[in-house]
Design a protein around this nucleic acid. Structure first.
Length: 556
RNA sequence: GCGCCAGUAGCUCAGUGGAUAGAGCAACGGCCUUCUAAGCCGUGGGUCGCAGGUUCGAUCCCUGCCUGGCGCGCCA
């Protein structure tokens, strides 16, 4: 259990005891046992607003309530002291003994420090990126990839089982149009006359796909008779080519999916039409003008949505419902989708449909990764390949590398529109926040190289606590103790940017400690104590960076 | 017109129903004969978009408005 949860438990027990001793009326469950971080360090390490929030119900002043609870709470050895101040805050100071014990624990647990286990882990399906297989991945996909993978990492670290999934929309008009476009380019390559399809894919990459298919599939193509079959064949090959490219780009970005789920297979095995039948029995479906509608207006949508067109072709929406049913059938407790900003309008209707077929909507979580603006020298960069400016994820990675890209995508909250400052991202200097974190890690590694060179015997069991009784060490130890709860909070709220914010604080606390205290000295006991603190910091930095998918270099 | 996201320091953004609203970058001024100065310390800078409301208390919750972005297909 992490420290914050333990504090919460201590508060609950204090309330229970006070009620038992007749000093407090029973608040039951009316007021949450919240634990917060005080605005300022001098107020303490944790603050509990319970007294303020329960004053009305308990018919006592917040100060009185706080006074009663403080006595009970101080008995816990994790707590050094409890202050009840002004309006009625209960401010808690963590004991140095606990901080020191935790320090040793960090070093012992290393890679697993901060990892939580659950008695009943949730089986979670996290679907993200899911870009159309009609071309290379763009910048928004890159953001979704970074954020999605980090969320998956956090959830796993917090004790859940997470499967990463990519939904491949390899069915329907878009794919057909891609096939036609590629086929046209192939014919062009061969010097044949042909018309380029209206509204086809004009991107330069289509020529690359055409060249690739023309080279590798010429034999197969020549055996195919009939334009339609040929288009289908080319489309299939083009999709394979694009998916392979997307997979490769994502792997270069440290993101790998357990499942690449083909939409086409849903149609082929009849799951889509099967879902239509199921929907029809739900009471929320009606037929009009030969089309089948879902009455999504019953679920807060602004209009009803078509499931089946009058020509008998299912809509994407129907397939999407079937797809989510498939996830349910695969036994997931929680289904999480990360969508692009252009899909936010679909949330209501999908949630409605899921509800209509009897799925508990709290087990479906849809996150929207907001748009990304590339900025350069303070100007918005138009993402246009024709202008010689890059627009793909691959271009971006070639420009700034995986570490910087992942960090920048994750450092802002998901629902914020992200201004991606390329000028800053490209700087390999202190101005770039990624390096600030990595530098802290590298600096510690360097310390240990130096210690080894000087023959210092580092044995954490001989790290004496009295040497860590200074401001900088204490602040640092407190941050280290917070790591498990920061991960848990970030995972529970699906907010990976909390990790970057937290790691900044750890790095800051370490740099400060490093500047104020010389670590390797003639005083062996102190040296070992300082090395232990540095070692523990290294563990937290490394574990945190691992969650972000950012490397923790040993030297810079 | 409707919907979603956002409006906090010069810029990019954190943040919380409560205690003097923070960080990074930018600006300015200090700190390396000793473990990595990709660092540390300090200074300046804010009517938390506007107006109401709920509350003992609102930057945070509610309503209205303004501004910016995106979306509003029987495409996927």
């Amino acid at each position: 259990m992490n420290l914050k949860s333990e504090i919460s438990l201590i508060v609950s027990r204090a309330i229970e005891s006070a009620v038992g001793d007749g000093l407090l009326a029973d608040p039951c469950e009316t007021v949450e046992r919240k634990v917060e971080y005080p605005r300022e360090q001098k107020f303490g390490d944790y603050a509990v607003p319970f007294a303020l929030e329960s004053a009305k119900i308990l018919r006592k002043s917040p100060m009185e309530i706080g006074g009663v609870l403080a006595k009970y709470m101080e008995a816990d050895r994790k707590i050094a002291s409890v202050d009840v101040v002004k309006p009625g805050f209960i401010n808690i100071f963590i004991s140095r003994e606990f901080l020191f014990e935790n320090l040793i624990r960090v070093i012992r647990e290393r890679e697993s420090y901060g990892r939580a286990s659950r008695e009943w882990p949730r089986k979670i399906n996290l679907e993200f990126v899911s870009a159309n297989p009609t071309g290379p991945l763009n910048i928004v996909s890159a953001r979704a990839a970074a954020v999605g993978d980090t969320i998956a990492n956090m959830l796993e670290f917090a004790g859940d089982i997470v499967d990463r999934e990519f939904y491949v929309n390899d069915y329907g008009n878009q794919v057909l149009l891609l096939g036609k476009s590629v086929l046209a380019r192939i014919r062009e390559l061969r010097g044949e006359k042909c018309e380029f399809p209206e509204e086809g894919y004009h991107g330069e990459y289509v020529r690359e796909i055409a060249a690739h298919i023309a080279e590798h599939e010429a034999g197969e193509m020549s055996r195919i008779g009939g334009e339609e079959t040929l288009v289908e064949f080319v489309a299939k090959k083009a999709v394979e080519y694009n998916v392979a490219g997307q997979k490769k780009d994502l792997e270069g970005f440290n993101v790998s999916f357990k499942t690449w789920f083909s939409e086409k297979t849903l149609h082929e095995k009849g799951a889509v039409t099967g879902m239509l039948d199921r929907m029809k029995s739900s009471n929320s479906v009606y037929t009009s003008e030969g089309k089948v509608f879902f009455r999504s207006t019953d679920f807060n949508d602004d209009k009803d949505r078509v499931l089946m067109r009058d020509d008998g072709r299912p809509t994407y929406f129907l397939a999407d419902i079937a797809y989510h049913q498939d996830k349910i059938d695969r036994g997931y407790d929680l289904i999480v989708d990360i969508w692009g900003p252009d899909h936010h309008g679909h949330i209501t209707r999908l949630a409605g449909a899921m509800k209509a077929i009897g799925f508990d909507e709290k087990n479906l979580k849809i996150l929207i990764a907001q748009q990304v603006n590339l900025m350069m020298e303070g100007e918005t960069v138009k993402m246009s390949k024709r202008l010689g400016q890059f627009s793909t994820m691959r271009d971006l990675l070639e420009e700034i590398g995986t570490d910087v890209a992942r960090y920048f995508f994750v450092m802002r909250s998901l629902e914020s529109h992200l201004d991606f400052d390329l000028t800053l991202a490209k700087k390999e200097s202190s101005e770039n926040p990624v390096f600030y974190l990595q530098y802290a890690h590298a600096r510690i590694c360097s310390l240990f190289r130096e210690a080894e060179k000087r023959g210092v015997a580092y044995d954490q069991e001989r790290a004496f606590r009295e040497h860590l009784d200074n401001e900088e060490s204490l602040v640092l130890m407190k941050h280290l103790a917070r790591f498990p709860e920061e991960v848990a909070d970030a995972a529970n709220t699906f907010e990976p940017h909390r990790i970057t914010t937290f790691l900044m604080k750890v790095a800051q606390a370490f740099h400060k400690f490093y500047t104020e205290h010389r670590i390797i000295t003639e005083d062996h006991e102190r040296t070992v104590a300082y090395l232990a603190l540095s070692d523990a910091t290294r563990v937290v930095m490394s574990n945190g960076l691992r969650l972000l998918g950012v490397s923790a270099p040993e030297q810079m």
